[in-house]
């Protein structure tokens, strides 16, 4: 019998497979199809202080082996997430969830993280720093070591649960940002967020997406993610949740060999709602095939 369990800063998971924020809603659509308690955990829809409708449509553009999305963090706001979504989610998911949090100022991050940290269902906070800093000239928090560290410090001060910072790959050197987060007290790194991308419609000769650019995800970015996780694993000592185009049990193993302690599955859920279930079910056989008995032993094995 192989052992698929892994551990993230004290949060133990039956397996490393976590649906990525924004591709699994609050779980109900998937709970209609299968028992989602088989998941390691699940990162719920990116939550902000206030409710957001998000960006105008079209928000989706297809690419070779992937898609671009520009949803714009549509969510009902943290109060409603706590009052309505989390109780509903509890009906279909009994394990700890990962709270994915976004903000447009340090105060917003602090406010939302503090609220969600108090929720018993939440096992870990995943702080998305790819949002523009409205008080800092609109540059994303994740593109400078100083602002990434500032968010990390501020959030750590008001929370008790592990804080993982979700990094944007759209930076000069992601290892520097990761180190800055580690130095500021982050318990882990979650990576990578989507790559900036654009498609242009040849008929209209305009960008397909209303917001022009969006985040590119899917199998096409898997090698980019593996390479970045590999480099960040060398740069920091804190655990990494690896993501970017994971679509199979083999991809999970590869990402873990690069340095991930657990993985998130994103775009694949949108094409195949059973993607996570299939990956989890295929994992023991894939482990056996590659002579792996204890999955958590392989993290960083490629180094």
């Amino acid at each position: 019998m192989v052992n698929t369990s892994v551990n993230l800063s004290g949060l133990s998971l039956d397996n490393p497979v976590i649906p990525a924020s924004g591709t699994f809603g609050f779980g109900y659509e998937f709970a209609e199809l299968y028992d989602i308690n088989i998941l390691g955990s699940f990162s719920f829809k990116g939550t902000t202080k206030d409710a957001r409708f998000g960006n105008p449509t079209p928000r989706i553009a297809e690419c070779t082996s992937g898609l671009i999305n520009s949803v714009g963090l549509q969510n009902p706001g943290v109060e409603q997430v706590i009052a309505e979504e989390l109780p509903k989610l509890k009906q279909c998911f009994s394990k700890k969830v990962i709270a994915n949090i976004s903000g447009f100022s340090i105060d917003e991050y602090v406010y939302t993280c503090e609220k969600l940290d108090r929720e018993e269902q939440v096992g870990l906070l995943e702080v998305n720093i790819s949002c523009p800093n409205v008080h800092g000239g609109g540059m994303s928090f994740g593109t400078s070591c100083a602002s990434a560290a500032e968010v990390t410090k501020a959030v750590k001060k008001v929370t008790t649960k592990p804080v993982y910072i979700k990094l944007s790959p759209n930076v000069t050197d992601i290892t520097e940002i990761a180190k800055a987060c580690e130095d500021a007290g982050a318990d882990g790194i979650s990576m990578i967020n989507t790559l900036m991308g654009m498609r242009i419609d040849l008929k209209t000769k305009k960008p397909v997406i209303a917001n022009k650019s969006g985040g590119f995800s899917g199998p096409a970015i898997f090698p980019v993610a593996v390479s970045m996780v590999y480099r960040v694993y060398d740069a920091v000592k804190i655990p990494i949740i690896g993501m970017g185009g994971i679509s199979s049990a083999e991809d999970v193993i590869e990402m873990m060999l690069a340095g991930a302690s657990a993985v998130e599955v994103g775009a694949a859920n949108l094409v195949d709602p059973f993607a996570c279930k299939k990956i989890i079910e295929a994992l023991p056989d894939a482990m056996q095939k590659y002579g792996i008995n204890n999955l958590q032993d392989i993290t960083g094995g490629a180094h």
Binding site: T23, T57, N269
Partner: peptide, 22 residues
């Protein structure tokens, strides 16, 4: 009609505003 990501409500790719909410 709208450009969709998943087609089953998970991705919020095809949201619209209505008088009864999003």
């Amino acid at each position: 009609e709208e450009r969709m990501g998943c087609g089953f409500g998970a991705c919020m790719g095809c949201s619209c505003k209505t008088k009864y909410g999003n």
